[in-house]
Design a protein around this nucleic acid. Structure first.
Lengths: 250, 250
DNA sequence: TGCAGCCTACTGGTCCGACCAGTGCACTAG
DNA sequence: CTAGTGCACTGGTCGGACCAGTAGGCTGCA
């Protein structure tokens, strides 16, 4: 026997215990979205801490996207429904701190997008397929309307696909990573010399993927989507890292 | 013309502007990990706000994993290197709020793991392959040593694979999702009646995957890994959702 | 009776000043 | 030269104060 092994009691600050309790109440369902927390002055009585402490705790909870408070609101802070905002934030930070290269982000998109397509090809409903059709139609219509509209239609297509995959985690991550990638290369895309040709090629690619999905051939659709994304983004990735992207092509 | 469209100026709180400035300094590289922020009393002079405001800002930055402060430290808060802790936290919340089912998490792991294996099969170095071999050897040795040791060896294997994929984002997401899944079913696994048989089957699966990677057959290795993970986890997933997992098998 | 407008009692946001328990460093006493 | 002791800081917490908002009840007019 080593004798009783005592853990070092790391000092736990007061506001942390407040955060903990509220967090458990929310995650445990005692507090559900839409409900209100007591006012700060009431909380400071219940927890018997000062208002500063209560407020620091609320700031943390707010940063985690769990609650929101509005000045002047006669009720206390509002418990929010979950939103991937916090996830989005931390992933964006990860990318911004330059820890992530564009190649890694694009590669991740290739993985997620093709997986979503594979799943959607097998699990989609007819209504969802129709939504995809109309999204591609929207892309066609947007060629003339300028680059912004085209981008939006493109995003709409991938959104439908992500929803059709039936996996919310894939959907959220795709959304997050896509917006990061688009922000990173927004100006480069706008300056592309042959924008219209790129758009038409992109539409052709989407039509091919869609056809494969309609036919129920998931693996083909997935393969086509990886190829399409490679063709679209490879130019923006430093040549040295392109081979790691090609490793995902068959 | 609609006339000039004015955006509603949503009230931006003082502490938010403090957060913003510090965040930009960190993400822009002006402040790099290991460096110290000025003390709270110094910050309140620089930003000309009260200490409460400074502290609320610091709480937010701390919640985002960007800084850490220690009581009594003669220097100010420390700028932290990026860690996926915040990512982990938000994804865990997402899972706890019951927004994410076990099936979705396992499915996501199947996608990420098989993609990492596909990439690793093509991009791995010989040293990394050797690490994988020894990880599997560790799994064999751990069968007798009990379930915890086996789990650790298993994790070690997948960690090497993730590193070998060359994609930090895949690596981080795998780590986060894996730990969430393992926590969700930890007790169920411990109670499994035929633990040893499961371990031996798992080892066989890993050996097959490893053989395919050694041979450079990425697609085969990826397919095997999806199958292996399905076999391992399907039992814990409600029957109704299993079909969505099978959609990833060929 | 009906409604427009004011009034009040709250809310959160910010500030100030104070105290405490830690920490590191310089200085002192041996 | 070193061991020990203060001191001057740090962050954590507290309490009180003021402000600009909001919502809902109340009043007074039509």
């Amino acid at each position: 026997m080593d004798g009783p092994r005592f853990e070092p009691v790391r000092a736990v600050r007061a506001y942390e215990r407040v955060v903990e309790q509220v967090e458990e109440a929310i995650e445990g369902g005692t507090l559900s979205p839409g409900q209100r927390l007591p006012s700060e002055r009431e909380l400071m009585v219940q927890f018997s801490v000062s208002r500063s402490t209560v407020r620091e705790a609320l700031r943390v909870l707010q940063a985690r996207g769990l609650v929101r408070s509005r000045p002047g609101d006669p009720n206390g802070a509002e418990v929010l429904p979950f939103s991937p905002a916090a996830l989005h934030k931390s992933m964006t930070t990860l990318a911004r701190v330059e820890e992530l290269s564009l190649a890694e982000l694009v590669q991740f998109r290739m993985v997620l997008d093709s997986s979503a397509i594979l799943l959607a090809a097998r699990l989609r409903t007819d209504a969802q397929l129709a939504d995809m059709e109309s999204a591609v139609a929207g892309m066609r219509a947007a060629v003339e309307a300028g680059h912004d509209a085209f981008g939006e239609a493109d995003v709409a297509f991938h959104d439908v696909v992500a929803r059709s995959s039936g996996n919310k985690l894939i959907q959220i991550c795709m959304d997050v990573v896509r917006s990061i990638v688009l922000k990173l290369i927004a100006e480069k895309i706008a300056d592309a010399p042959d924008r219209e040709a790129l758009m038409r090629q992109s539409i052709r690619h989407h039509e091919e993927v869609l056809a494969a999905m309609r036919a129920g051939d998931g693996p083909l659709a997935a393969r086509l989507s990886r190829k399409a994304m490679y063709d679209y983004y490879a130019g923006y990735v430093p040549a040295a890292e392109r081979s790691s992207l090609r490793a995902l092509l068959d």
